[in-house]
Design a binder for these strands. Structure first.
Length: 654
DNA sequence: GCCGTTTTCGGCCCGACTGTTTTCAGTCG
């Protein structure tokens, strides 16, 4: 299932010197692919909107998706709403400029865009609005769409709730459940009420948080904006975002300047600010358009390192550092690291007595530190990277100079687990391979869905063999790059796999993943995973807990047993870098690593641009204390092929 | 609403699961 949590792509986080080349390549390809017969063309519009009013591609995508949802709510022909969703996906994956396609009348030639939708897109691009969509929106209150966020409430049920009980938002739905007005409706019952209430509680507990991957663009934009201000000397993002937490509540920025008030005034004028919460002299808080709260603090330049350390946290890490400072006769705060001397103060303090120690003012001298590294050094510690600052053993390790050299995204030499248009991906095999090469990767593993994933157009055995043949032929043209033939094989009931061993053994590797039926209990789920991992041809376990950040909790599974099984069988565990997943969780990796389990960082890409997701995965691997040698895909091509072959031999004897 | 053709309209994404109902509808992946 493709997730499009990060709409509009990433900017410099995923920038690459060859990015432009990729785009040009894709653009050229699309141009060649788009049929443009005169009969299939829509009427060529005479005028495209001026740049100020230009409707961007993402707006078109969200309008098409909006129409699809509203049609579902209306109870229209499901294939009609599906057509709009397909069109949204097609537009989203276009490499060409949408307004150019419209201007040249080449829109309708694209597969998935017919006459009706083509005309609507043209209207939206050329006039800036779409009356059809505006009329549809009038039929239901906007808040009704919220109900669809509640697990177990789909368009049909939302419609019934609205029409029968006038429920139009989550608050009124909750009230109706508590008053038992839902259970009496046809098709609903007491269990429905119970599940909806549970779903509402889950929805609310997630509402105040944001996924790391959803914030990368806004962080970069704000940093870029602040750096343009000449009175700002240093600026850095701090907080949980800097620590690479998968979920972030708010953003913290630290900067230094000699004119703090001017910086504050500049900050609150950032174009994406939707509301100014506080506008102080050295600290301001704003709400950004995406609903995230964002703080900026200005400190004198000489205090930069202390402030950055303090506001990066975590709180637990800071407490441990302060306790350490106290034990050494020092004091640490956002304003500095101080040496505290009571002896010196006793000589100078006036009015002191043993009965009245409060009068004693300790003498403090600041220990000058220009960087976080210097602060750690002054505390007798090695530098601790932000990702490790969770008070989970990093201070003890730093004391012994045992902080590992953590994996970096430049260490990654290739990735596994990518999808193509053969199943539910949005880029072709050729586009995926070219993008991987342009990113400097040496290999790219293709793992489309297996046949049981009907919703994802999973491959039949025949199609798998055909894809293997195609990959083999494509590989003949490259010396320093290789496509690997894999499959994301569904784990079925009782741990049975979707394909027979006779097929699995022909592939370069197998990712085994659970996609359905994980509503069983912990023991059932755990045994299914273990049974799959014990299969001699399963190379790695895909997204082990099935969580979708801020959407769905992990299914119940005993990860200790799964990790032990991985250690025993040599089955690798995936760190799925899809921003919605980031699964297996970073908190488990250090234990897994210590047991000898190898990690594979996979983007689970459904579009060539998503291959770069592996960089978010590297963040999580770093939080999990993983080193280059713990991550399989840091191996160069020759060694990874060797590893796959050795692994195959070992596992056959398992 | 799109596609492909049998060119004027039928087929399009299937199956598990849950909760409801008593044979099925809705949701989800």
């Amino acid at each position: 299932m493709p997730y499009r949590a990060i709409k509009g792509g990433f900017s410099s986080f995923f920038s690459h010197k060859k990015k432009a080349k990729i785009n040009n390549m894709a653009k050229k390809k699309k141009e060649n692919q788009s049929p443009t017969s005169a009969a299939s063309q829509v009427e060529v519009p005479k005028k495209i909107l001026s740049p100020a009013k230009k409707v961007d591609k993402q707006t078109v995508v969200s309008v098409l998706e909006g129409i699809a949802t509203l049609l579902e709510l209306k109870g229209e022909n499901p294939f009609k709403s599906r057509a709009y969703r397909t069109a949204a996906r097609v537009i989203d994956s276009l490499a060409e400029e949408l307004d150019e396609l419209v201007a040249q009348g080449r829109l309708k030639g694209i597969k998935g865009i017919g006459e009706g939708i083509g005309e609507k897109i043209t209207q939206l691009i050329t006039t800036g609005s779409l009356p059809y969509y505006e009329e549809l929106k009038k039929e239901f209150p906007a808040s009704l769409l919220e109900l669809l966020e509640i697990p177990g409430v789909g368009p049909k049920r939302a419609k019934i709730l609205y029409e029968e009980l006038g429920i139009k938002d989550i608050d009124s739905l909750e009230k109706a459940c508590k008053e038992h007005r839902i259970a009496v409706l046809a098709g609903f019952g007491p269990k429905s009420e119970e599940n909806i209430l549970l779903g509402i509680s889950q929805y609310r507990s997630f509402a105040a948080y944001h996924r790391y991957g959803d914030l990368i663009n806004i962080v970069e934009e704000l940093l870029g904006y602040l750096k343009k201000n000449p009175s700002i000397i240093h600026v850095h993002v701090a907080g949980s975002f800097r620590r690479g937490k998968e979920i972030v509540k708010d953003l913290d920025f630290i900067c230094t300047s000699g004119t703090p008030q001017a910086v504050m005034d500049y900050f609150v004028r950032f174009p994406q600010v939707s509301r100014i919460v506080n506008h102080g002299e050295t600290k301001s808080t704003v709400l950004l358009e995406k609903g995230i709260s964002c703080d900026l603090r200005v400190v004198p330049d000489e205090d930069y390192a202390y402030a950055l350390l303090h506001f990066t946290g975590s709180k637990e890490h800071n407490v441990a550092l302060r306790q350490r400072a106290i034990a050494q006769g020092k004091k640490l705060s956002e304003w500095g690291l101080f040496r505290v001397s009571r002896a010196q103060e006793r000589e100078t303090a006036e009015g002191e007595s043993e009965d009245n120690p409060k009068l004693v003012q300790p003498f403090e001298s600041k220990i000058p530190c220009r960087s976080e590294k210097e602060i750690y050094a002054a505390l007798g510690l090695a530098y601790i990277p932000p990702e490790l600052r969770e008070n989970m053993g990093e201070i003890e390790a730093a004391e012994k100079n045992e902080i590992p050299r953590l994996v970096e995204w430049e260490d990654i030499r290739g990735v596994f687990h990518c999808h193509t248009t053969e199943s539910d991906g949005r880029s072709s095999l050729e586009e995926m391979a070219k993008a991987a090469m342009d990113m400097g990767l040496e290999y790219l593993g293709i793992a489309d869905h297996s046949k049981s994933s009907f919703q994802a157009n999973g491959l039949s055995e025949e199609r798998v063999y055909a894809q293997m043949e195609k990959i083999k032929n494509m590989n003949a043209q490259w010396k320093n790059f290789r496509l690997l033939s894999g499959i994301e094989c569904d784990i079925l009931k009782e741990g049975k796999l979707d394909f027979p061993d006779s097929l699995l053994k022909e592939l370069d590797y197998v990712v085994a993943s659970l996609h359905a039926g994980f509503s069983g209990d912990e023991e059932d789920n755990t045994q299914r995973l273990i049974k799959a991992m014990e299969n001699p041809y399963v190379t790695m376990l895909g997204h082990p807990t099935g969580r979708l950040l801020l959407v769905r909790k992990p299914y119940p599974v005993n990860m200790d047993k799964v990790i032990d099984c991985a250690a025993r069988t040599g089955c690798w565990i995936e760190l799925n870098a899809q921003p919605m997943r980031l699964d297996m969780d970073w908190r488990l990796w250090k234990t897994a690593r210590d047991k000898g389990v190898k990690c594979v960082i996979n983007p689970d890409a459904h579009h060539f641009k998503e291959i770069a997701f592996f960089k978010i995965g590297v963040n999580i691997a770093r939080k999990g204390w993983l080193r280059k040698e713990d991550v399989i895909n840091c191996l160069p091509l020759k060694e990874v092929i060797q590893a796959l072959q050795i692994k195959g031999r070992k596992k056959k004897g398992f």
